[in-house]
Design a protein around this nucleic acid. Structure first.
Lengths: 216, 216
DNA sequence: CGTCCACTTGACAGTCGTCAATAGGGGTGG
DNA sequence: CCACCCCTATTGACGACTGTCAAGTGGACG
């Protein structure tokens, strides 16, 4: 992969990395920090598509489709590995294994989006929030970012609400109920989950079946 | 592509093509007929992920991830082009252009799923139904399956409801209101849309911006 | 000290789900 | 040929979940 690496990029929190409709010459891999992937509807509402964590690949759509269909923004300071988009074709020609990995990444991404669709479509508000927290907890644990029963979660409640298709107020009330029941406490960009099992039960989710995310 | 083609498969309506959790040795391309891609949640509810139309690629997930994360079923009689899953690797090694196309397919699929997430998350029931109908209308028009202002739509209202995260009853009432307003009439597996513009307005959707789906 | 932003909380309204009953078609067996 | 059954579509009533509006708190920052 190093042959295609252009360099590293450090950005401050709040920086837009890619914008809907743009076609940047670069693609990224997140090395540290977190971000958001979102779409803006014609009506102005924002839908958060996914939360970006270290190891995530950013910009595949722009690379193969020529234009981004969603925006990406850093919510904390981030360090990114930068690749040249035009090198992608060389990858396919000369490094079939890497190209295959890339397709794998796309397929895994598709799988997670499918899960999201299922959650938005079939779960209630409470289940959705529990589901999201469990998923984030598992993912960040796998990334070795968990300390004890807490993970870093540098987002606003509004971000979670926009990801789950709930209003900010309602999301807040659900989080508040989790807090009073001791199921999950999200405060100061830290999420503490005393019992993942209990939360997973509410989410109607089997944590064992969650696949691992890819790393390139 | 012909080198990788094993043969053609004809199935009757109602036949399951792929099942969640299975790992079949084959992948398909739909040649004719329509189908459904869906997930079953732990709680038993069904979420329709997408509607399958001629030209769609089926089984990429199983091919690269080893196991399907959703099920696929034929809703009409279908004819499929069958490929050998193990040939996929040869494709990457010897036909980089085709491999790239495959990744492109995956990226486009990801884009449409992103649109779906945004719809389920941000649109109201009425908007969702209008959005789905517009999208189907555009897609089937592009496939040259439109006759006048009608397209074939061989699904049940329950399928649409499961795709949009709405109850059957509510979906029915929305369709009923569209019918009485002359916006869209769905009857006997035929959808008639007198004015795509009006429907697109309700959907809060710009039909011009809809990208074309890929064909392999 | 004033402003801004994120988070909270309460009240109220509307969308949407559930329950239930009915109608219409197609297929099967008598 | 007709009765019966099953599946899909339809419609009404009722209630719950969730959104909107509004007001208030507390911390960060200039």
């Amino acid at each position: 992969m190093k042959r295609f690496k252009i360099g590293e990029l450090s950005v401050d929190s709040g920086t837009p990395l890619l914008s809907e409709g743009s076609s940047t010459p670069q693609v990224f891999t997140a090395l540290s920090g977190m971000g958001l992937r979102y779409k803006t509807l014609e009506t102005g509402e924002r839908q958060v598509i996914s939360f970006i964590m270290p190891g995530d690949f950013i910009g595949l759509q722009a690379a193969v489709m020529g234009e981004m269909q969603h925006s990406v923004e850093a919510t904390t300071d981030m360090v990114l590995c930068v690749f040249d988009r035009s090198a992608l074709w060389d990858l396919f020609k000369h490094e079939p294994q890497r190209a295959f990995d890339l397709t794998w990444v796309a397929a895994v991404e598709e799988h997670f989006l499918g899960e999201t669709v299922a959650s938005l479509g079939q779960r209630t508000g409470t289940e959705r929030v529990a589901w999201a927290l469990v998923r984030l907890y598992i993912h960040l644990s796998a990334l070795d970012l968990r300390k004890g029963d807490s993970i870093p979660l540098p987002y606003r409640q509004q971000d979670l609400a926009d990801a789950l298709g709930l209003s900010l107020v309602h999301t807040n009330k659900i989080l508040s109920s989790f807090r009073s029941k001791g199921l999950a406490v999200w405060k100061d960009s830290q999420l503490t989950v005393p019992s993942l099992e209990k939360l997973a039960t509410i989410a109607a989710l089997d944590p064992e079946r969650e696949p691992i995310r890819p790393l390139i």
